[in-house]
Design a protein around this nucleic acid. Structure first.
Length: 290
DNA sequence: AACCACTCCAACCGCACACAC
DNA sequence: TGTGTGTGCGGTTGGAGTGGT
């Protein structure tokens, strides 16, 4: 099972195709079909390898290829299919008539992937990013809230330490459900190209994640401006399937620029660790975070 | 006008798999 | 079963195009 040597052969032309080459290839395939790609170049009078001919035909010269910008519907389809299939470009292409896998791949890499990253989503999982630096400002903000919260704000029977742990669990857990496609598309279709981060949603006192459903809720601020401060309380923290509220946090008012959290020395490991109970530090996985 | 940085996409590369012998 | 060939696929790259200074 060796590699095809066709592209390694000397004397074969590489690089951009000329109109004459295109014409020869189209003429030959229209007349004879492509048959064996390896044999085709010689038969068609082309100084190219078969692989190059196949690529040129399937990605550019095929008569059923649709060219031009991707429509919003196509964009939505790609997002949906990618969330299911991953980087299976050829499989995605079969659902988009007239589009090639290469075209879809390029569109993904140059547009959609960047949009998702800009929005704070992992383009591979379609979930909010859970890496340390993305999660850290959440952790710091919530840890601060709990630390400075009067005890009456906590549900009876739960210590502040337990609440902190549940905060962390909530943050990490809330990132696990797949992002609903309509949520992604609502974000992508937003006229504001500077997509808000999850912190913006927190500034507007809107929960980014709905803990009672498997879908992530699109904050109202993404779709329409908030009319007032109604619904200003932070969402209930729930614990697994019991959905038992463990605390209700008031609006976040001290996060005018939470993204700056990592630019200060307070971002250091020891400072972060001081917020969390020792049991977190004992856990090898959690120790990675603190 | 010249230069630079950045974007975009056509084309290439190399791996994996199916199949024939 | 092992080997060679043909093809498909996903990742990567080079250069043309574009916009900013």
């Amino acid at each position: 099972m060796g590699r095809s040597p066709c592209c390694d052969e000397n004397g074969l032309k590489k690089g951009p195709w000329t109109p004459e080459e295109d014409h020869k290839l189209v003429l030959y395939i229209q007349k004879h079909g492509h048959g064996s790609w390896r044999a085709l170049p010689k038969l068609a009078g082309l100084n190219r390898c078969g692989k190059s001919c196949r690529l040129r035909w399937t990605n550019y010269l095929r008569p059923d290829i649709k060219r031009g910008k991707f429509s919003p519907e196509e964009e939505q389809s790609i997002l949906h299919l990618h969330s299911i299939l991953g980087n299976k470009w050829s499989a995605i292409a079969t659902h988009l008539p007239g589009r090639t896998d290469n075209e879809i791949k390029n569109f993904w890499n140059t547009h959609l992937k960047k949009k998702l990253i800009q929005m704070g989503f992992d383009p591979m999982t379609h979930r909010p990013r859970t890496d340390f630096f993305a999660a850290l400002p959440h952790l710091l903000a919530l840890a601060n809230l709990v630390d400075h919260r009067p005890s009456t704000w906590l549900v009876d029977g739960l210590s502040a330490e337990a609440a902190k742990l549940q905060c962390l669990q909530y943050i990490l857990h809330s990132a696990t459900p797949p992002l609903a496609d309509n949520s992604i598309n609502n974000l992508l279709n937003s006229t504001d190209q500077s997509f808000p981060s999850s912190f913006d949603s927190m500034n507007n006192n809107q929960p980014l994640f709905n803990t009672h459903s498997t879908e992530i809720e699109v904050p109202l601020s993404y779709e329409q401006p908030l009319m007032s401060n109604e619904n200003s309380s932070f969402s209930l923290f729930t614990q697994g399937e019991t959905s038992t509220p463990i605390s209700v946090l008031p609006p976040l008012t001290d996060m005018s620029n939470p993204g700056d959290a990592c630019s200060t020395s307070s971002c250091g490991g020891s400072a972060v660790a001081s917020f969390w109970p020792d049991l977190l530090l004992d856990d090898p996985f959690m120790a990675e975070f603190v």
